[in-house]
């Protein structure tokens, strides 16, 4: 099924008249995700937090295979927080979910390393039980590092991106 721009505009116009913050439509290959206003739990996503690394997390949290007797894998706070430059800040996941770097598979990522983004720019999508939630940068900056891979399970408060403040 194809949707031309006119139809897309009609959909958005219809949505504009309804109360919603997240909208998702899927049919065959087609996937439309629209969000409006403040992202869910946006306050924690947009809070740049370079001054508060997590001291308890000792090692980089690679997604190690699970074993029943393994020690607690530390939450993945450490890597980003440890090597932050003075002008950098971290964008954290506002919720537990699956990380998607692009609007749909095969499409270009929302952002690439080196790209300058506005505060309201969408950096990624976090999917929770089929609900898509977009994560904004929260602050204007340059994307320095992407800390997770497409399709990864990310935890609440997990660092996703390191951005450099615009000088």
């Amino acid at each position: 099924m194809d949707v031309d721009l006119e139809e897309l505009a009609a959909i958005i116009e219809l949505l504009d008249k309804t109360e919603f913050t997240q909208f998702r439509f899927e049919k065959g290959e087609l996937r439309i995700a629209v969000s409006r206003g403040e992202p869910l739990a946006g306050e924690s996503a947009s809070a740049p937090n370079p001054a508060a690394p997590t001291p308890a997390a000792p090692a980089p949290a690679a997604t190690a295979p699970t074993t029943a007797v393994a020690p607690v894998p530390p939450p993945a706070q450490a890597p980003a927080a440890d090597d932050l430059a003075a002008d950098e800040f971290v964008v954290r996941s506002p919720m537990l979910g699956t990380f998607y770097s692009a609007p749909k598979p095969g499409e270009p990522s929302f952002v690439e390393e080196g790209q300058t983004v506005a505060a309201d720019a969408v950096l990624c999508i976090i999917e929770v039980m089929k609900l898509m939630n977009s994560v904004p940068a929260g602050e204007t900056g340059v994307v320095r590092r992407v800390l997770v891979r497409d399709g990864d399970l990310v935890e609440y408060d997990q660092p996703l991106f390191v951005l450099g403040r615009a000088s």
């Binding site: 074993t67 029943a68 393994a70 537990l96 609900l131 609440y156």
Partner: peptide, 21 residues
Amino acid sequence: AGRVVVLGGPQSRDSYLSVDA
């Protein structure tokens, strides 16, 4: 536990009471 995942914030409604998470 074998593995730990952080579901959400400290308040129960954001973590332990979130069916979706």
